[in-house]
């Protein structure tokens, strides 16, 4: 019985997580230039190969090679995870909502891993599927567009004054689930350096360094 108040407090705390406040969008009424939503997303079919560091509790745990093939026109995604030694640990496709796992060796063989990985790839490379809910500026001055996804999640895409773009995915109740940072220098491919920070039972981060990017002609 003693645990009931704790559970209630936990539920209350979780329920009260709030999304970052967005100030009114600039526009004709404010006399400022209208805001254009930042779009770090792919415009054409691309194949990308990244060296990926996996970090947990602030320490690098392992490194892998990630291959991603994404078509924004059809929203199809193919992906593979390899070790430096060339061993394929995971390979899957997602087409029209259907997930096809071709190969999954431990520890990448859980059903939730495949779905989460495809969702993360879509978050990074494809524009949100939902509707734009709000435009404006965050407290740090970054311009932001907020999407509402069909499943109730919120996606913020913000561009900072230095030009760096962030993507944040929040649960319907406002809890931060993913934070993607594009850390590219001027003139570099926007996907040259990407950080993905995941809030899970065990938080983890992926540091992605681009090896190769290649447009794919059908």
């Amino acid at each position: 019985m003693k645990s009931v108040p704790i559970l209630v407090l936990t539920f209350f705390f979780v329920s009260c997580q709030t999304l970052p406040v967005i100030n009114n969008a600039p526009g004709p009424q404010t006399g400022k230039e209208a805001l254009i939503c930042p779009s770090p997303f792919l415009k054409e079919k691309y194949r990308l190969i990244h060296a990926i560091e996996i970090q947990m509790a602030g320490a690098t745990r392992s490194a892998i090679i990630g291959v991603t093939l994404v078509d924004p026109a059809t929203r199809t995604v193919s992906c593979a995870i390899l070790t430096a030694e060339g061993m394929v640990l995971f390979e899957a496709d997602a087409d029209a909502g259907l997930l096809n796992v071709r190969r999954a060796l431990p520890p990448f063989d859980s059903t939730s891993f495949a779905k989460n990985m495809i969702d993360d790839i879509k978050l990074i490379f494809l524009s949100p599927e939902g509707k734009i809910h709000q435009l404006g500026t965050l407290s740090d001055g970054a311009n932001v567009c907020r999407w509402r996804e069909e499943n109730g999640d919120w996606i913020d895409v913000s561009v900072h004054q230095q030009g760096n773009i962030d993507i944040q995915r929040y649960s319907a109740s406002g809890g931060l689930k993913r934070h993607v940072k594009f850390i590219n220098k001027a003139g570099e491919n926007i996907y040259s350096s990407i950080e993905l920070h995941a809030k899970e039972l065990s938080n983890y981060s992926l540091l992605m360094m681009l090896i190769e990017a290649q447009p794919v002609k059908n």
Binding site: R47, I65, V67, L69, A80, A84, G86, V216
Partner: peptide, 14 residues
């Protein structure tokens, strides 16, 4: 080392 896969258009060279 040359890695060939369906997802790769050309082998990944290490």
């Amino acid at each position: 080392q040359s890695k060939s896969m369906k997802i790769l258009s050309k082998p990944l060279i290490s």
